[in-house]
Computed example of a mutant assay.
Amino acid sequence: MVQYTNASLDASFAALSDVTRRGVLEQLGSAEASITDLAAKFNMSLTGMKKHVGVLEHAGLVTTEKIGRVRTCKIGPRRLEEEMAWIDKYRQLWAARFDELDKVVEDMKRKEKVNGRKKRK
């Protein structure tokens, strides 16, 4: 079996697989926030939030900047084009398969309808 490996896709999907990290991205989509503010918002320890932010930062989804004692987070420069292209490829594949399935079902319904008429005569 061929193994498909892409470190950036792996890091992105791993980062997005957690509900807290998706929530952090939503929060940062509205405004920058400190790790302390994010930890409070998610009722989490500072250490726990640092780990989540680290995963997001490793994936390039978040950037941080330390000014004095405060580490501020903001949305990273990546736009997820590669991830969206990967998802779209499979969306198109499944859409085509469901279109074919629809044709089979319609054909079966049509045949059933024709056969039902023949039996009534």
Rank of each mutant, 00 (worst) to 15 (best):
Y90H: 13
K111Q: 12
N115M: 15
E83K: 02
D102W: 14
E100H: 15
R21A: 01
K119G: 10
C73P: 04
F98L: 12
G54M: 01
F98N: 12
L9C: 02
V55L: 07
L9S: 06
L61D: 00
K121H: 09
T5D: 08
L16M: 07
Q92N: 10
I35L: 05
T20C: 04
M1G: 11
K103Q: 10
R71Y: 13
K118C: 04
R117E: 15
K121Y: 05
K66Y: 14
S45A: 12
E81S: 11
R21S: 01
E65N: 10
A95S: 15
A59C: 07
R78T: 06
D107C: 05
L56P: 00
D18S: 06
V19L: 13
R21F: 11
R120S: 15
A40W: 08
K118S: 07
G116D: 03
R22E: 08
K109F: 04
R78I: 12
L9I: 02
R71A: 00
E65D: 11
S34G: 12
F42T: 03
K119P: 00
L28F: 00
F98K: 07
I67L: 12
R79M: 06
A11N: 05
L56R: 00
D18P: 02
F42D: 03
M49K: 01
T20I: 15
G68Y: 09
K41W: 03
F42C: 06
G23I: 07
D102Y: 11
G29D: 05
I67F: 13
L56G: 01
Y4E: 06
